[in-house]
């Protein structure tokens, strides 16, 4: 496997460390990611003791050629998209570290951990207030959205 894109080596390392010590309740679909490192599918279990206990979610990570300087494109996919004030019904996530607060020092593991904690700290299951409007009008790529991070508590 020759590393052509500059991000390949980093992704390979991240995959290895992810497989070695995955965050609790999170597994990477290594069959799918093994073929193409630029798209990862991550399975996530709702943390026990939270509103999402027992639920299973799927996250899709898409890495651009500028990764790790540019943030990955992270969306929920599959049948079960968590009902959460920061997750739109099309799977887009309103999380600052996925766009402007991204740092190359972050990794897939830390992003997964952030999303797990975002879900875990939720107190009421509901969609974002502007969900229906956003889902109709938004770009396919959540990074193209100009997010307004109005809530720091969750």
């Amino acid at each position: 496997m020759s590393s052509t894109a500059p991000s390949q080596r980093r992704l390979q390392k991240e995959l290895m460390s992810f497989l070695k010590e995955p965050p609790p309740g999170v597994t990477v679909d290594s069959d799918l990611t093994g073929q193409d490192l630029s798209v990862w599918i991550v399975h996530m279990d709702g943390a026990p003791g939270t509103l999402y206990e027992g639920e299973k979610f799927q996250l899709q990570f898409k890495f651009g050629s500028k990764y790790p300087f540019d943030s990955p494109e992270v969306t929920f996919i599959g049948g079960n998209i968590p009902v959460h004030p920061h997750v739109y019904s099309n799977g887009h996530i309103c999380l600052s570290i996925l766009t402007e607060d991204w740092s190359p020092a972050l990794s897939v593991q830390s992003v997964c951990l952030s999303i797990v904690s975002m879900l875990s700290s939720c107190k009421e299951k509901r969609r974002p207030p502007d969900n229906s409007f956003y889902v109709k009008t938004c770009n396919k790529n959540p990074k193209k959205t100009k997010w307004w991070y109005h809530d720091d508590s969750v």
Partner: peptide, 22 residues
């Protein structure tokens, strides 16, 4: 195993950039 694939693990970690892993 990864060494045979990547031949990269022989490089001491301190020589690698922690962000790009080069």
């Amino acid at each position: 195993k990864p060494t045979s694939v990547e031949n990269e693990n022989s490089v001491p970690d301190e020589f690698l950039d922690p962000i790009t892993c080069e």
